[in-house]
Each structure stands twice: as structure tokens, then as C-alpha cells.
């Protein structure tokens, strides 16, 4: 059995030092891997990333992350990524990694993802260049995600996104903003490639549990949704095992 600790939307600022670390002391006993689904920082500033990196330093299990829209705000997303990677966090953008745990090998693929909305009520790549680039960005990231998932091998496959791949985990958010919270293109990519679990954040007022149209578990692990510093998801083991 693989035990995965997950959260999203820590939104670290330069004043956030000390707010997370004391709550992570027993994390290595509870989980084999820790994943963060984007919005690592408040404004995508390198100093904010450094403070989060220090906060996570010394945690003795692998940490895997994707970036979120807040991490792009200052146009320094590459620096944010570099700072996190230098501290040992694996950052995925259309990429994959495999981690060996006591319970088996887990393959993780991830992307920030982007918006557009959900089948039946979504934007299309039509009209103005700005509209085409909006949806084009989501399509490009979804295609890379699908390739990354297909490249995974392991006993279990997990997908990380920041934007939501389904609307089920958005329940509680205003309907008008669904197109800015996620896209069915991400869900479609996951369903085509296949996975055991998709974790996302971004929808702070949404709902934890959902499922893709293809029947894959989706969990919105935004902090205000899960109301815990992280939750633990266990899978891939003997059916009699439990967390």
C-alpha cells in the first residue's frame, strides 16, 4: 500500500515562516510521499519560495509539487521552480517521476493545468487570438500531461494538477467562475491515459471528493477544503489493508 500525503494552496508569503513546519513533524510516519498541488507562494516571488523551501527542508520523505497560478504572478515561475528544486522538491510541468516506497512504486505525473470550463459549458478555441491562446494553453498542457501519464510505470499512477479536471470537486464555488477553475480537457487526458488518483487545488470553496467521467478518483486538496494541514490517501495495496 502506498500512503500519499497531499495538500494545495499554502500561498506562502515572506511572513509565513514557521506556520507549516511545526505541523509536519510526524509526516514521515504517516505517509511515504508528500505532494503539493500548486499555489505554493502568495505572488510567485523567489523570496516566498525560499521561505517555503526552508520550511520543507529536512522532511525525510520525497516531496513532489506542481505550480499554481499564484506562482506565475510575478513572471518568475522558473525561479520559483528552481528554488524548490534546489531544496529537493521535485516540480512537475508536463513531466513525470517515479518514487519507490515500502508499499510499491508510485508514478506521479503533473501539470499546473489551466481553465476553460467543462463539457457543455466551456470556452472554445474560436474567434479572437486571446480566446484561442486561452484554450490553446489548456490544450497544450493537457496533451503534455497525457504523454507524461503514459510514460509512467509503477504499481500506482497519480496525477497532480492545480486547476480542476472535473466540476464535481468545484461544488460550493460560484458557477460563473467554473471556466476559471478548471477544464474538462485535463480530465479527458487523465481518463485516456488512465490513473488511480488525481489531486488538485485552486478551488478554495470547492468540495474534496469527485470522480472523472471515466471513474478515476479526484480529490480537491486545497487547504480551505480539506481543513487539515494535509490529508493522507492510501491505495494500490491489499484490499484488506487500510490507512
Amino acid at each position: 500500500m502506498i500512503r500519499l500525503a497531499a495538500s494545495a494552496d499554502v500561498h506562502f508569503g515572506t511572513e509565513s515562516a514557521g506556520t507549516l513546519r511545526p505541523q509536519l513533524t510526524d509526516l514521515p510516519e504517516r505517509a511515504d510521499v508528500y505532494v503539493l498541488c500548486g499555489d505554493l507562494t502568495r505572488s510567485g516571488d523567489a523570496n516566498e519560495a525560499s521561505i517555503l523551501a526552508e520550511e520543507l527542508a529536512g522532511i525525510e520523505i520525497p516531496i513532489v509539487a506542481v505550480l499554481g497560478n499564484h506562482d506565475y504572478h510575478s513572471g518568475q515561475e522558473d525561479v520559483v521552480r528552481k528554488v524548490m528544486e534546489e531544496s529537493g522538491v521535485t516540480v512537475l510541468e508536463g513531466e513525470a517521476t517515479t518514487i519507490t516506497t515500502a508499499g510499491g512504486r508510485v508514478g506521479i505525473a503533473g501539470t499546473k493545468g489551466f481553465g476553460g470550463g467543462f463539457a457543455g459549458a466551456c470556452a472554445t478555441e474560436f474567434g479572437e487570438g486571446e480566446m484561442k491562446s486561452f484554450i490553446g494553453h489548456t490544450k497544450m498542457l493537457s496533451a503534455k500531461l497525457e504523454d507524461a501519464i503514459n510514460s509512467l510505470n509503477g504499481d500506482a499512477r497519480v496525477v497532480l494538477t492545480h486547476y480542476a479536471p472535473v466540476k464535481g470537486t468545484l461544488v460550493g464555488e460560484k458557477l460563473e467562475i467554473y471556466p476559471f477553475l478548471g477544464s474538462y480537457l485535463l480530465g479527458e487526458a487523465v481518463d485516456r491515459a488512465g490513473a488511480d488518483l488525481v489531486l488538485h487545488g485552486h478551488a478554495h470553496a470547492g468540495t474534496e471528493k469527485g470522480v472523472t467521467p471515466g471513474g478515476i478518483h479526484v480529490r480537491n486538496v486545497a487547504l480551505p477544503v480539506i481543513k487539515h494541514v494535509y490529508n493522507v490517501y492510501c491505495f494500490g495495496g491489499d484490499a484488506l489493508d487500510s490507512c
Binding site: I226, Y230, Y233, C234, F235, A239
Partner: peptide, 14 residues
């Protein structure tokens, strides 16, 4: 100001 429980909820997925 957000304050979240440290002890996680654990879910076994099947």
C-alpha cells in the same frame, strides 16, 4: 486566519 488540524484525515481508496 486559516488554522488547520494537524492530524490528517486518512482515506483508503478502492
Amino acid at each position: 486566519v486559516q488554522a488547520y488540524e494537524a492530524a490528517p484525515d486518512a482515506e483508503t481508496l478502492s
